[in-house]
Amino acid sequence: MAKRPPILNRVKALREAHDGMSQAALAKEIGVTRQTVIAIEQGRYSPSLESAFRIARVFGVSLDDVFQWDETAES
């Protein structure tokens, strides 16, 4: 079984706070498929650095506001 990446994210919360932006709309903005956005939100996939920056730019926040290292997962 693939190990889940030790990275937490607030993509879903930011998307909902962004006028309820749809997953498809976010996917189009950052150039991935809707399934990839779903996988990111569920923590099954860590996006590339470029996509991570694109997500942060869409919401107008810093990278740290979107993605955080999961300290509990490391131990």
Binding site: V32, T33, T36, P47
Partner: peptide, 11 residues
């Protein structure tokens, strides 16, 4: 729509 999707980084 999905059939027209190109492969993204995860794919």
């Amino acid at each position: 729509e999905e059939a027209n999707d190109v492969e993204d980084e995860r794919d």
